[in-house]
């Protein structure tokens, strides 16, 4: 089981790192503050590149979320069988619950933002601003909770 968790942790960690970078790159700040001048980070100032990367990684993140949620459900269902360490007594840590809430918020707001960006779709202006700010808020909560659990070495499940 540790093996599976390790691989999914690596995928999740890399996805989170680059989706956060490409997400913040939607704001014109990396060029202003010389970050895009660092060799290898020039792509952070190319808005269409970061837009495509953000979308592609959002697809990876949603695929991973769907996999982990169902895998967790089946693992609890088959509690007690060999190779499965998740049991019916397994609980999700409070910090993980916060991360799950933030991830859910990101996926929901992100979904509407992707729909909004399709041709011929019009959302009221206030809704667009709200989606932008909420998406940013959820990202900040997720990154804050991730930083906390990383420093304190907290796991997702207890």
């Amino acid at each position: 089981m540790v093996y599976h968790f390790k691989s999914r942790r690596i995928i999740y960690g890399l996805t989170l790192l680059f989706i956060a970078l490409s997400g913040f790159a939607q704001m014109p700040i990396f060029k202003r503050y010389y970050i895009a001048d660092i060799p290898g980070l020039g792509w952070l100032a190319q808005f269409y590149v970061t837009h495509a990367i953000h979308y592609a990684l959002a697809a990876v993140l949603m695929g991973l979320c769907a996999y982990v949620v169902l895998d967790y459900y089946f693992a609890r269902k088959t509690s007690g069988t060999k190779r499965i360490q998740i049991t019916k007594d397994t609980r999700i840590a409070a910090s993980a619950q916060l991360k799950i809430a933030a991830l859910s918020g990101l996926i929901i707001t992100g979904f509407f933002m992707v729909v909004k960006n399709l041709s011929g779709i019009y959302f009221p202006h206030g809704v667009v601003i709200g989606l932008d700010l909420l998406h940013l808020l959820f990202a900040m909560v997720l990154l804050g909770a991730t930083a906390y659990t990383w420093v304190r070495r907290r796991t997702w499940i207890l």
């Binding site: 269409y48 837009h51 495509a52 979308y55 592609a56 959002a58 697809a59 990876v60 949603m62 695929g63 991973l64 979320c65 769907a66 996999y67 982990v68 949620v69 169902l70 895998d71 089946f74 088959t78 979904f111 992707v114 960006n117 399709l118 041709s119």
Partner: peptide
């Protein structure tokens, strides 16, 4: 905006693929 619109399709497929992988593993 075409690249973004095309990648939107990947976002629909990805959760289905993730769920299928979990079911397959089970």
């Amino acid at each position: 905006m075409a690249a973004g619109s095309n990648l939107a399709i990947a976002m629909v497929i990805a959760p289905i693929a993730g769920a299928a992988a979990a079911v397959g593993k089970y």
